[in-house]
Design a protein around this nucleic acid. Structure first.
Lengths: 334, 334
DNA sequence: CTGAAAGCGCTAACAG
DNA sequence: CTGTTAGCGCTTTCAG
């Protein structure tokens, strides 16, 4: 069915080696035979088999990418950036999200090895690593494929790229304090936004403001953040805690909080100020436009790609780096 | 570096054929030798090279997916569904978005051939196909790889899956009419939402309502829909057209329209009703929650996958189908 | 049940 | 400049 280099060689009356030469444009080939071959290629609609080439060259020009999910502003935007940057460098992307399923995560990791990817970009892993997972990671490390992790899915000895969650959180609190807020609540998650919680605590501490543990609501759930935010806001209000501002661990939580507040009869930002984290596109698309911490997604993506390629080039001594990108407070309506 | 079947064979004192047998679990192997081999595999952290297998088996178990972009609710959600469904069936996904660039589109199409994917899922292509593009498509068709297209990126002879854009649009207009609206404007795009415009026109026609061409604003632009919506709403108001409802070609446009209206001093839905199309997640995340037409993304994804696999199985006679999925009017606040 | 050997499509020396 | 040939890692007859 598929045409091979052999078919082309026969058609053009040359050897397969010569065909290979013109395909790759490396060695010199007489102009005349070159044209003959090009014509044959055209005629047969021939396109070389990359996998076959791979067998001898040991480079698949494929990168494996495992985000936790795709159907979410942050990860899809990041995927787009990564995919584009990688494409420009001549790499194709094998994308599979693990959806927080441990079995799937393991299979994906093995998939990347099976498929011989040249490099791997890993999103955060599920927290509860069991033995099988540890083994899978070991297996991966053994192959010694360059890896870069995102968002603190820290695997020992692997380079990571992340934003300054703690610093960003501190700047939020600092800003709220300077805006005159005395009681600032925090609604976040134990998993991804833990460092944001730390930043919240640190900022209060630095400003000598006592931390009211009752105005901190956390979840270890990882699914529907908006619903969590909604419930948490209710909880906060019903527990009679005083607060004039709520710092939310991410934008989706903030949306839920805003909706709950509205239902309760509190207006944003008149009665309560809300600040999120991430600046996903929905935050500025609708009103009130959310005040939030912007993650420099483009930069994160490019950095990941750069670091990975760099690591792939240097081949051996991969120094384990931890790269932290700055965030930016985007003050909008809430 | 990488361990091969040979290493395992040596370690276990058997031939590579036998190793291959236990890897694939097809032929019978004596329990004893099987265990020997399994141990060797474990010890060496061996994982078979899928590409090598591919060479002989002619099946890569890889599917190529080319959405126009990833950083957008609709496509990222769809990607997630497709990726998951395919994963369950044992396929990996090669994802590359073309970002409406014609050169990139061509390269991606060729990439899919080079990489020997078993099947292809295509999102809408750019409208302005030049000769090179036509050639690329021809080349693709020649390889006779099963293909399914999404959202009317119709290539002659290729099965497509789409939602009932026209029907959905008609139901919107019908609903607005029944709600008492007399003047309904339309703001949409020439590309993807053309059929929605047709639906809009048809519905008015059926109800014997004259169409005011001045209250139809279209763009052939494909980038920032929200900004387009914003500008279009201004244009509409400034042109002094009368309208009490605006049907927008997609949700992003609707967001822009709502923002503009707010700026102008018109309230939604009191002064003007707004209806979108797509029901991307941002539509229900923020208030006012948009009234819109829901695209059954999960179903679209599953259908595409099913149809593609079915086509891959039946191998030869691929009957060209056009599958149209129903939409659903979701009445919310606007 | 197991081994030897051919070959998948292509690249990369090595000779001419 | 061009042809011959030896693999790449694996599966699959074909013999034992």
């Amino acid at each position: 069915m598929r045409k091979t280099i052999k078919d082309v060689a026969r058609e053009a009356n040359v050897s397969i080696a010569t065909v290979s030469r013109v395909i790759n444009g490396k060695d010199k080939v007489k102009e005349e035979t070159k044209i003959k071959i090009m014509n044959a290629i055209e005629k047969l609609n021939f396109i070389p088999d990359y996998n076959a080439r791979t067998m001898v060259q040991k480079k698949t020009k494929m990168i494996g990418f495992m985000p936790p999910e795709l159907a979410n502003g942050y990860w899809s935007e990041l995927s787009d950036v990564i995919q584009n940057d990688l494409w420009k460098k001549g790499y194709a992307l094998l994308v599979t999200s693990h959806n927080m399923e441990i079995e799937k995560t393991i299979s994906i990791l093995d998939l990347f090895i099976e498929r011989n990817v040249d490099g791997i970009i890993l999103g955060p892993l599920t927290k509860n690593k069991n033995d099988k997972m540890t083994n899978a990671i070991d297996r991966l490390l053994h192959q010694n494929i360059p890896i870069v992790t995102l968002q603190g899915s820290s695997i020992r000895g692997v380079t990571s790229v992340d934003v300054d969650n703690q610093g960003g959180a501190m700047s939020v609190v600092q800003y709220l304090l300077e805006s005159g807020h005395k009681q600032i609540a925090f609604i976040g998650t134990v998993n991804s936004s833990r460092e944001r919680e730390f930043g919240y605590r640190n900022a209060l501490m630095i400003n000598h403001i006592p931390i009211n543990e009752k105005s901190i609501i956390l979840t270890d759930y990882n699914g529907d953040f908006t619903t969590f935010g909604y419930k948490a806001a209710y909880e906060l209000v019903e527990s009679k805690q005083k607060f004039s501002a709520i710092f939310c661990g991410n934008d989706l939580i903030a949306f839920g909080v805003i909706r709950a507040l509205k239902k309760i009869g509190l207006t944003v930002p008149e009665d309560v100020s809300i600040v999120g984290f991430d600046d996903i596109s929905a935050s500025s698309l609708r009103s009130p436009m959310l005040t939030t911490i912007r993650q420099p997604i483009k930069e994160i993506g490019s950095t990941v790609v750069d670091v990975l390629l760099e690591q792939m080039e240097s081949e051996k001594k991969t120094i384990t780096k931890k790269i932290v990108l700055p965030t930016e407070l985007v003050i909008r309506e809430t």
